[in-house]
Design a protein around this nucleic acid. Structure first.
Lengths: 250, 250
DNA sequence: TCGAATTTGTGCGTATGTATC
DNA sequence: GGATACATACGCACAAATTCG
């Protein structure tokens, strides 16, 4: 390998990648087998294997034992409009987590009281050990799981009120802002932090994904007059969704 | 390999991973060398190598040629405050891509004219083939590459003006809003879409990462009076950064 | 139903280059 | 320079899954 050249396996990977992105190898097409790659590029078995591994790590292809290596479909990601997004029509920016264009979202949830962990306490601005209501959601979009969410609300805020359980009562499933409004708490700010990481096996199981898939994690906290009233972790499969913000420049 | 067992390299990787997460191998500690692993676990060179590769792909360790394989620090992800984020102090929400708390950002860039691809034309609301100025950036934070960005501006907007080249002239490096203001274009809206995927080998090379690492992709478009004046793709390593939005709930 | 060919996935041994100590 | 350690590369072997006649 001469100076300045990139390794053989990266050269082969780049060539195959090019054929994938420019459409010469469309989704569901089979890549040349390891043996064919070896012949076509004049490289060893190891190099052909490493090249395939690079593309697999990039999520472009998927190996099926005994069959071949196939180009994966990359669905056009759907848009999840977040708070702050104002669609052309004048609909509410809230409870839009499921929708770009009115997709019917359904969800299940389970609530449970617990003591705030150090991290949750930090996010809610309370003392660790204070009691909070934790609610886990699975959101579905047309039956397909699309989003996992876990939210925490301090019981000092909602305790002994009709909205203590997010999904019970007349305001069940209405969203944080409306529920808080019902007990005279005006949510006026929201902080959202977006991160991403490989999904945990457990999450991907629930989301119908494949080990190794990437998820985005949205850490969201609602504030009312400077006090945190709800914080949540939202897990979203990154291959199917994007998170959209529409902001005005002061 | 008996039925139901996992491959040897995964067994070795799991054992080493356990030692890392439980602290037996703290950050900056050196892993056993390939030869040592071979001896300790009674496996071949290949298995030891593959095991290390798994941990490297997970971002837990980093190999230094000639020296060893070291446990990486997993820094609390730094926050990249995006447009819309208003820190307690009243500083400008723009040109904050580099900073949580005043980190000095440096960058390099290279501009070039080209014809708009179908995708870029769509995003800019122009015809494919119209000429645009493409500028590629590498942003650094204390010398470490932290962000790749490619921006496109229609030449119908900036052509034959002092700000045609983003990084030239008196307003070089000033940010889109200020530059556009200089030619009497008032940027009033920005649309940001956050996605995530495994990084391409090329991107991770530039960002100092490892094949397989996750990146976030920020697709950002600035608008002035409903017309797109700049669009950009921003690639950010997800293990080191998060993207923060602070929004008010009207 | 059976079996052969193909292909991936895993594993072994070895060699060479190159960076670090 | 020498020793160590990682990175790349070659060739081979075998098991498991798949495909196909």
């Amino acid at each position: 390998m001469a100076f300045g050249e990139q390794p053989a396996y990266l050269r082969v990977a780049s060539d195959l990648r090019e054929k994938i992105v420019n459409g010469a190898l469309p989704p569901h097409a089979r890549l040349p087998s390891q043996a064919r790659i070896r012949e076509e590029y004049g490289v060893s078995d190891t190099v052909a294997l490493e090249a395939r591994k690079v593309l697999m790590a990039e999520g472009l292809v998927e190996g099926r034992s005994g069959s071949g290596t196939y180009v994966r479909e990359r669905p056009v990601p759907r848009r999840i409009a977040r708070s702050g997004y104002r669609p052309p029509s004048g609909s509410s920016p809230f409870r839009q987590e499921q929708t770009e264009a009115g997709a019917r979202g359904t969800w299940e949830s389970r609530s449970e009281q617990e003591e705030a962990s150090a991290e949750i306490a930090e996010r809610l601005g309370i003392e660790p050990g204070e009691r909070v209501m934790r609610t886990r959601y699975v959101f579905r979009d047309g039956g397909e799981p699309m989003m996992l969410s876990t939210s925490w609300e301090p019981l000092t805020v909602t305790g002994r009120t009709p909205v203590m359980l997010p999904e019970e009562g007349p305001l069940g499933g209405c969203g944080v802002v409306e529920r808080m409004a019902a007990i005279d708490i005006v949510v006026d700010n929201v902080l959202e932090e977006v991160g991403a990481r490989p999904g945990l096996a457990e999450e991907l199981m629930a989301l119908g994904g494949v080990p190794g898939h990437v998820v985005m994690v949205l850490e969201r906290t609602y504030f009312a007059s400077g006090r945190a009233v709800e914080t949540a972790d939202v897990v979203i499969p990154a291959d199917r969704y994007r998170i959209a913000y529409h902001l005005s420049v002061r």
